[in-house]
Structure formats: C-alpha cells, structure tokens
Simulated assay, not measured.
Amino acid sequence: MSDPLEDFLAMLASERGAAANTLAAYRRDLEGARSVLGDLPRADRAALASLGPAWAALAPASLSRKCSALRQFYGFLVDEGLREDDPSGALPRPRARRPLPRILSRDEVERFLGRAEEEAAGDRPEAVRLLALLELLYGSGLRASELVALPVAAVPRDAPFLHVSGKGGQQRLVPVSTRARAVLSRWLAVRADKSRFLFPSRGAAGHLTRVRLFQLLRELAARADLDPTRVSPHVLRHAFATHLLEGGADLRVLQTLLGHADIATTQIYTHVDSARLVALVNARHPLRDKAVS
C-alpha cells in the first residue's frame, strides 16, 4: 500500500505546483508529527491534542506552520476517502503575530551599493557579478531562490523586463531598472562560463547557491561598514518593497512585483511604513522631550 504522506506530497507538487523547498518543509513537519503520534493517518483527536504539550517549546510561528501542514494533510485524507472524520480541530491554534520585516534605510542601501560599485570599477568578474546580484535584489525585489536560478534566457535583449519563475512555478515579468540593465550588460561581457544560468557555479546545482549569495552579501556589508547580521537577500527584498511603498507605489502593483499570491502577504509593508512614521514623530516632533504631567 502507498504511504498517505507521500501521496499528499505528490498532490501538493502536481495539483498546487508546490516548490521543492515547500515540499521539504511539509515533509519535515509531518514526519516530526509522525515521530510523536506514530500512525499519523489514523491519529484521533485526543492524539492531536497531545501535540500541544509536546510542542510547547516551539515559537508561535513554528507551531502555526506545523499545525497548518497537519490540517491540510487530514483534509486531503478526507477528500480521498481515506478517513471519514477530520481530527485537526483538536490541534492547538496559536495566534502568532507576524513580525515586521527587517530592512535597511535608503542611506544604508546607498552605502552598500556604493561600495559594490567601487569594487566593480575595474571590471573584475567577481565584483561585477556581485554588483549585478545587488542591483537585482534591491532594484527588482527578487527572492534569493529566483535570483540565483535565473537562466541567461530570462534577460531579454530589447525589453526592460526579466522573465522570472517564482514560487510554485508561477511566471511573472519583473521590471529591470536602466542602471541594473547596464550592470547586467557588463556582467554578460565578462562572464566566462557558458552555462545556461546567468550566475553559474561549478557546484552540483549549476548556479550560485543561496548560501553563497548570503555569504557574499555579508562579506560586502562588513567592507561597507554595515552590521553584517542585518544584511541578507531577503532584507534587500524587503527594502525594495518598503522604499517603493514610501515613494507612493500602489499595494496591488507591489503584490505583482513581489509575486505574492495573496494581497495579505503584501500588506505587511503598510505596517512597516506606519512604524516608520511613528518613529519619525517620536524622534522629530517638538514636544518629544516634554514630560506628561
């Protein structure tokens, strides 16, 4: 007999177009639950309720993710006729408040890019590549996984757009700024490798890995006198979104640019902008130092 867990993951891949990273996360969460409950497909409500104490030490966001995986798994079993009841109502329901994303200020981004531009002035391939990576992270808001896996064919000759394959294989067009296009032209001119990937590597993946991208950014941050712990590919994506919103971008446009399936995911940036405004009032208002009687 087939394993219902494997059947569920196959359904996510085929019907919902789940990415490899998403499938790996579901597998970890479900196998973790199976290690506690034993026979996962036949677990009853009392067994699922026992997960609350077993997972008490988890962060709210982690607990919420694991419970979501289980709810979808049991919904799948019911839909497939493998169970008559859905016991997932007994799962704990943490109310995790989504934290505001970390970002860099405009001045910090300018310092970061300025350092990369200085290092790329001599057309050294490694330095030009890093500048191109930065321009696409901050200038187009790409995810790290989207960026490192870009094929050369994604860069059109006569249109200011990239063809990007996002989460779940969803395709979208992403605008590329004039300066980013200029840096990409420089990179293509000095790029020696004939790989189909825009940012090739000799590793098994065939392209630059997300881990190496993360390392390159932190090393550059240190050289630019920025705190390396505050810098990552996702921080630059957040900075792209936040700075566009501050400049008057529409939330729906931002959703399209970021490749978010749900507008609720994009709405986090309205909270970032609100937090910035509150901080500005607290720091600059003439009554900030007046004591309240």
Rank of each mutant, 00 (worst) to 15 (best):
S232E: 06
A61M: 03
S50N: 02
V174K: 04
K194H: 11
R106H: 09
A116W: 01
P101A: 02
V278A: 05
P233H: 04
A24V: 10
S201F: 10
L184H: 11
A291G: 12
A192T: 14
P151D: 14
D250P: 13
R276A: 14
G166M: 08
L220R: 01
E246P: 10
R202Q: 14
L251V: 15
F112I: 10
L51D: 02
Q215H: 14
A283H: 11
F112M: 10
S64N: 02
A204P: 15
G122V: 07
L131D: 11
V164L: 05
L208I: 13
R237N: 09
L236I: 09
A56G: 14
A19Q: 04
G114L: 03
E118Y: 00
V281I: 06
L134W: 07
F199D: 11
R98F: 02
K167E: 14
L136I: 14
A47Y: 03
E146F: 10
D289F: 03
R111P: 04
R93T: 15
R95V: 11
L134V: 14
V109F: 05
D79E: 12
A121M: 03
V109H: 02
A261G: 13
G139D: 12
L131T: 13
S274C: 00
L142Y: 10
L9S: 05
E135C: 10
L150Q: 05
L70F: 06
G81A: 09
V109K: 02
A10I: 01
G52P: 03
R230L: 15
T242K: 00
L58M: 06
F240W: 01
R97W: 04
G259W: 05
P160N: 08
S177D: 12
L257F: 05
P94D: 05
S185H: 12
V231S: 06
S165T: 15
H271G: 08
R45K: 09
A121E: 15
K167G: 14
D86M: 00
G81P: 11
R186G: 11
S185Y: 00
W55P: 02
L220F: 09
L257K: 03
V281P: 00
P175H: 06
V190L: 07
L184W: 10
S105Q: 04
R106Y: 01
P175M: 04
A222H: 08
S293C: 00
L133N: 04
E146R: 04
Y138A: 06
S232P: 12
A20I: 07
Q72V: 04
V183H: 07
V281R: 03
L104Y: 04
A239W: 00
R191A: 09
A18H: 11
G169A: 06
S195I: 11
L100M: 06
L245G: 03
D262T: 12
R191S: 10
F76C: 05
L236D: 03
A239G: 14
R111H: 00
A275H: 11
P94N: 05
T256V: 12
V176C: 07
R196F: 05
R179N: 11
L198I: 12
G89Q: 01
L213F: 10
G206K: 06
A149N: 07
S185K: 14
K66M: 08
A61T: 14
V211F: 09
A90Q: 02
P53R: 01
R212G: 09
